[in-house]
């Protein structure tokens, strides 16, 4: 079974990840997976509103997933839908295991995900962007969360389906995965698969997450590694204050994340 865009079954679409795309945010990232484009921004940790959502022992990851009305062929109505409400929830649950939320009791970490263009795999692109944005914000994390969907067309397990393939696949299985701890943080599926095929598709998706993980790390290196433009400038000017919009809010966390970058 050949793919329309000539990819091999186990290939991702062309992936582009850029960290630090929104100057105002404490952390941000843009992810392109084929034609799907997701942008994520992180604000915080900061005061949690509304108060009743405040957790005494940890931070709350307030997650909002939205699709731009122009992101789809038929205009999608702005505002909350049941779909976006559910995706916001599963995205939060996919990322929470990776974050040291207990480090910031009573606060809120605000995560906003905007889908600029939707061509299948928007929740996975959103999670990939969010994970990089959280690291970019210097929020201490156990690992990055990488996310890719897989499916089955004909007899083959296909990775990272695009929109046209989504119509043909026997199932759509978005997975999010923490490669360091080998744990699955998001698993959804709709379709029709035998248990054997389900296991195969899951394995395929996990392999895809491992590839995505490397690209996420690369994006963070480009932003924060020794050769990154911002970091170079900072070293040159030797200012006491970090440039605005980069280390604001959580200096210790930001250092931690660059440190772990070096370790890898």
């Amino acid at each position: 079974m050949k793919r329309k865009d000539k990819r091999k079954p186990g290939d991702l679409r062309s992936v582009e990840i850029k960290a630090g795309v929104i100057e105002q945010a404490d952390g941000s990232a843009m992810v392109k997976m084929g034609r799907t484009i997701a942008v994520a921004a992180v604000y915080g940790p900061r005061e949690m509103h509304p108060r009743r959502m405040r957790k005494s022992e940890r931070a709350f990851l307030k997650t909002t997933y939205r699709m731009a009305p122009f992101s789809t062929t038929d205009r999608c109505r702005p505002g909350r839908s049941r779909r976006s409400q559910e995706i916001s929830m599963v995205t939060r649950e996919a990322l929470e295991p990776a974050i040291f939320l207990e480090e910031f009791p009573k606060t809120g970490i605000y995560l906003f995900i905007e889908i600029i263009q939707a061509d299948a795999g928007t929740r996975t692109a959103g999670i990939n962007a969010a994970s990089v944005a959280l690291a970019d914000a210097g929020i201490p994390m156990r690992d990055l969360v990488a996310s890719v969907a897989a499916g089955k067309i004909g007899k083959d397990y296909f990775l990272d389906l695009e929109y046209k393939e989504e119509e043909e696949t026997a199932a759509d299985v978005p997975v999010a995965y923490m490669p360091r701890t080998k744990e699955i943080t998001l698993l959804q599926m709709d379709g029709d698969l035998s248990v054997k095929d389900m296991k195969g598709v899951l394995q395929t998706a996990i392999k895809g997450c491992e590839i995505m993980y490397e690209k996420q790390k690369q994006a963070l290196r480009e932003r924060w590694g020794p050769n990154a433009a911002d970091v170079k400038k900072e070293l040159k000017t030797k200012t006491a204050k970090p440039p605005s919009g980069t280390l604001r809010g959580t200096p210790s966390g930001a250092q931690a994340s660059t440190k772990t970058e070096k370790k890898r």
Partner: peptide, 19 residues
């Protein structure tokens, strides 16, 4: 016996074996 839908919830992960 085929699987038609999966949904993971909760704030902690699963391992592949558990699934």
């Amino acid at each position: 016996g085929n699987i038609v839908s999966l949904q993971k919830g909760g704030a902690k992960p699963f391992t592949q074996d558990e699934i």
